[in-house]
Amino acid sequence: MNIIVLVKSVIDVELNIRVKDGEVVKDGLNYILSKWDENALEAALQLKEAGDGEVTAVTVGPDRAGEALRKALAMGADKGVHVNDPAAAGSDAFGIAKILAKVIQRNAFDLVIAGRQSQDTDLGATGPVLAELLGVPLAVNVIEIDPKPAGGKLNIKRKGDVGVELIEIALPALLTANDSLNEPRLASLRGIMAARKKPMDILTLSDLGIDPETVGAAGSGIEIVEFQPPPQRAAGQKFEGEPEEIARQVVELLANEAKIFA
């Protein structure tokens, strides 16, 4: 099975994200592989280990995205593709999906797996748009994959709003991964050593035959006008005294202030 995994380098959101003049202050920030992408990669690696095939990790982004890609290779992806072109910066989900579609369509593939959203923008759109561009069926928020495809179909479970859907999806297809899909492995020493020798294609937009005007900030239908820092969480309230008294106070506050019974 030929599996493509989409990966993205994102700001480590464990850090304090500071905003100054409507821009995120980059100083002191670290970048990591987006966590749902790790689930996507883990799923791909498990599928490969259950049968056979090849896992290709693809990313679009600046130089630092290469580190995320290297991490994916260290975790076990067989090869990497890095679209590194300044003209791609500022793309919206549609722009990124267009670039990814061009990369993916260069070769035959059976399955594309993405994170259900990226950890920084939380948009969750790239996967679905890409499925549309590739013209393949889509299942988002996947929580379980039966590693044995049968009759060109894959049995999966996805988490819906109110329940779990059991789906048979025809390959080739695109899935996006929920974080309960699996427990991603750590890059082992063996993996890190091996990753150094794995092939990594670095491509520009012109290599892919993409008109720079159609992607990046130039081709984007949306513009981020300003970043605002998240609101400070208000301090919690501590109750003291007899349990009955505390319970009475809490119920009162829940009813009158939080209005949860309204």
């Binding site: 480590d12 464990e14 850090l15 304090n16 002191g28 670290n30 990591i32 427990e183 492995r185 750590l186």
Partner: peptide, 20 residues
Amino acid sequence: NATFRGLEQNANPWNIGYDK
């Protein structure tokens, strides 16, 4: 794994932002 990940990313076992 969670501990190792925390050490890798933020140099502490809980993966709390290193800047804290």
